[in-house]
Write a protein that binds this DNA or RNA. Structure first.
Length: 765
DNA sequence: GCAGCGAACCTTTTT
DNA sequence: GGTTCGCTGC
């Protein structure tokens, strides 16, 4: 089992049972170490499969871990606690739903469901959506939950913050009433459950004798606290991660967890995996040199014995269209040389960049696939069916009610629904609960819908899950609706696909022949026989089997949105964002759009640590390549309907010359000079345009001088007062002269972009 | 209830 | 430039 491991990998695998941190560089065999560690712990008798807890971020990573583990050891991995944070928390909450104060059939809201729930809450509260856009409220709520904060824990020093806390509370009340939880709530609820209920906590602390965490750099504050709570005083945590690949701070990941874990728990027990088995020397040295520009690293230097390989090639084209054309020509040549298309990846910073590239590939008939499209379970028609299924499982789920109460249309209009919502609010019930109290014709049509749901629920008592879904598709009228629609054919096919997915799910989970709505008898008996806390004292955990096939499938649909890539297996060039490329590797990689403002992205420069995260992103991009790495940039780019001119990305200048080979002459100025400097103007050469538009680096410009309008000088961070919006802070500046604009975060009025020549602003000292 | 229109959005994203 | 959202008018 330990054969073929290098000394550091072997050390990591065979560490004693204490907290430890493994700093695993890109391509250093991280997953191998993690799975071998699990196998080794089991094989040496230190722990049974039952006593392991392994946490990942994605379902894909969890599956991969289980697959590799069963290749190493002849054990049955079913029932092992290996999964995502959210999946494991769901399991905990299902098993202890009473103690967690959740209904047995609680539903999980995905981000889109959450947003519509928030919109509904804002509407009910009569909130002005100018000042409180639903998206902002959603971000605030999720941010608070990621930090483990409830509405009462928020800092409410001003009226705006007080209002936000109030909205958070209203949203929570609404979720409570409807029996739904969002993703953040899954984690926070599970954490609070363990914290509050000592017998449950102690049971799991005893049960888990080893905890392993993958991608530890991506954990947020709450996930870290959850892990350490579960570990308790005796369970060692084996954390694997790479601080240089932390690229998810924007969604709450806290790299600081790594340093904290090292200092407080894993003192000295840090193993660095620095031998890279993926990339040639030039590539690796470039990545090392680039990332060395970051401060606050735990420190690590990758090396390889694979030889230095080719230098990185750099290509500059006049426009994004020409950049795309060059890529296509180059890729066709590679394919002609016999390189498989699937071994070629085109990476970009933002999704918008894929358009011209796709266009060029399509015209040249080069097969390609784009990652990051819509997921299967996120398709509209699928969400509609799922909404019916959720109402069967939990009629109080108002989000689902609203989604399908009038889809397909059945004459239930906005006025009827408002009336229903008013009554529901009055008696503090769900929409379903209010139906009986809606008078007149409106009440009658609603009652008819409620009857439909009851009949579908009745069917769930006898039909198995795939049959039930077919039944729902037919009796809800969705089938007829899509059949009548000229473009409904694809949607009908997807609905059939959903039936197939359900059949596969039923087979995999051992639910064959079971009515969709029925909780398996054995599990139900165990639940009934045991008191509220006996269930987990029986050695065997209450498993997700306390759920009906329907309930389990709905959880599955929410927690695993399905593939977001085109059909696998096909030999096609791979297009994706750098974020999506994390964890993957290719023979040949093209990193495109290496322009200041795009990569690093201009928005990232505004927040603290943003540039360093962009640099880590670039580091991730560089380390995806095995043999051939090409960096491309364009002098002009179509963005938001405007042609913009960017400067060469600073990241190109952070890679030592000796690793770069310029295929086209180097033309454009480096990013370090501000756009108004002489060097920039000279560098401008023949091209003119909106240089100095917001595409130019804001930080460089504003750090030095700011923007002067009349006798006032605006800088990032300066306080300003506006007649209508009140006081605020300048967070971004762009343009100059008559074009100058400032983005200002007002304390009460939200964030606005104002033309400095027009808006009456006063700079405060 | 729905088509049609103008306004507002536009970094990255898993669960 | 493209899409999506929400309002208006039929």
């Amino acid at each position: 089992m330990l054969e073929g491991l290098n000394p550091q990998q072997r050390d990591a695998v065979t560490l004693p049972a204490e907290h430890a941190l493994v700093l695993a560089g890109a391509g250093s065999g991280k997953t191998r170490v993690l799975t071998t560690r699990m196998a080794w712990l089991i094989q040496t008798g230190q722990v049974g499969p039952h006593g392991l807890l392994a946490v990942t971020f994605t379902n894909k990573a969890a599956r991969e871990m289980l697959t590799r583990l069963s290749a190493l050891l002849p054990i049955n991995t079913r029932g092992m606690w290996v999964g995502t944070f959210h999946g494991l928390c769901n399991r905990l909450l299902r098993a202890h739903h009473r103690e967690a104060q959740l209904p047995q059939a609680f539903q999980i809201l995905d981000s889109a469901d959450q947003l519509s729930a928030i919109k509904r809450m804002l509407k009910a509260a009569g909130i002005d959506d100018e000042r409180f856009p639903a998206r902002d409220v959603q971000r605030m709520i999720n941010g608070a939950k990621e930090d483990g904060l409830r509405p009462g824990d928020l800092d409410v020093r001003d009226a705006h913050a007080r209002r936000l806390a109030d909205l958070y509370q209203r949203y929570q009340d609404q979720c409570e009433r409807e029996g739904v939880v969002d993703f953040g709530e899954l984690l926070l609820r599970a954490y609070e459950l363990l914290q509050r209920e000592a017998p449950i906590r102690e049971h799991y602390q005893r049960r888990f004798q080893q905890i392993l965490v993958d991608e530890f750099q991506d954990t947020n504050v709450l996930q870290y606290r959850w892990l350490m709570l579960l570990a308790g005083a005796h369970t060692p945590v084996f954390a694997v991660g790479d601080d240089d690949q932390s690229i998810y701070a924007f969604r709450g990941a806290n790299v600081g967890n790594m340093a904290d874990f090292e200092q407080r728990h894993a003192q000295g027990r840090v193993i660095r995996l620095e031998q890279n088995y993926r990339s040639h020397g030039h590539i690796l040295d470039s990545a090392n040199a680039l990332i060395a520009h970051n401060t606050r690293r735990l420190g690590k230097n990758l090396w390889t014995d694979a030889g230095e390989g080719e230098p990185l090639r750099v290509v500059e084209q006049a426009s994004d269209a020409l950049e795309a054309q060059w890529l296509v020509d180059e890729i066709r040549a590679l394919i002609r040389e016999g390189r498989p298309a699937r071994e070629i990846a085109i990476l970009y910073r933002s999704n918008a960049q894929s358009r011209p590239i796709e266009h060029a590939l399509f015209s040249a008939r080069v097969p390609y696939r784009v990652y990051g499209g819509q997921r299967f379970f996120e398709r509209l028609e699928i969400k509609h069916v799922l909404a019916y299924l959720r109402l069967i499982d939990n009629p109080d789920d108002d989000t689902s009610w609203m989604r399908v109460v009038n889809f397909p249309t059945r004459g239930i209009g906005a006025r009827t629904l408002e009336q229903q919502a008013d009554i529901a609010a009055q008696q503090n019930s769900s929409l379903a609960g209010a139906v009986a109290f809606v008078p007149g014709k409106a009440g009658a049509v609603l009652a008819r819908f409620a009857t439909l749901i009851r009949e579908l629920a009745e069917a769930a008592r006898t039909l198995d899950l795939p049959e039930l879904i077919g039944h729902v598709v037919h009796h809800s009228g969705l089938e007829a609706h899509y059949r009548a629609d000229r473009e409904g054919q694809d949607r009908l096919e997807n609905l059939q696909e959903l039936v197939n997915a359900a059949a596969a799910f039923v087979a995999e989970e051992g639910f064959q022949g079971l009515p969709a709505g029925r909780v398996p008898a054995a599990a139900a008996a165990a639940e009934a026989a045991s008191g509220p806390d006996a269930a987990f004292d029986m050695g065997a955990e209450p498993s997700p089997a306390v759920m009906s096939p329907l309930g389990a499938f709905l959880s599955h649909a929410s927690l695993e949105a399905g593939d977001n890539q085109a059909q696998a297996g096909e030999d096609a060039v791979q297009l994706m964002t750098v974020h999506a490329a994390k964890g993957l590797e290719f023979d040949a990689v093209f990193i495109t759009g290496l322009e200041e403002g795009l990569f690093p992205h201009e928005n990232s420069l505004l927040d603290a640590g943003g540039l360093e995260e962009e640099r880590r992103l670039m580091y991730v991009a560089l380390t995806r390549a095995r043999e051939r790495l090409t960096l491309t940039l364009a002098q002009s780019r179509m963005l938001h309907g405007q042609t913009r001119y960017g400067m060469r990305s600073r990241f190109l200048d952070e890679i030592p010359e000796e690793h770069l080979k310029w295929i086209t002459p180097r033309q454009r100025p480096a990013a370090a000079q501000p756009p108004w400097s002489g060097a920039f103007r000279r560098g401008l050469g023949g091209w003119q345009g909106e240089a100095g538009s917001s595409f130019a680096p804001r930080a460089a410009r504003t750090q030095s001088s700011g923007v002067t309008v009349g006798d006032q000088c605006f800088r990032i961070g300066s306080g300003v007062r506006h007649g209508r919006f009140g006081e605020g802070t300048v967070v971004a500046l762009s343009g100059s002269g008559a074009e100058a604009q400032a983005r200002i975060e007002f304390r009460d009025a939200g964030t606005k972009t104002l033309a400095l020549g027009v808006a009456k602003l006063e700079v405060l000292d």
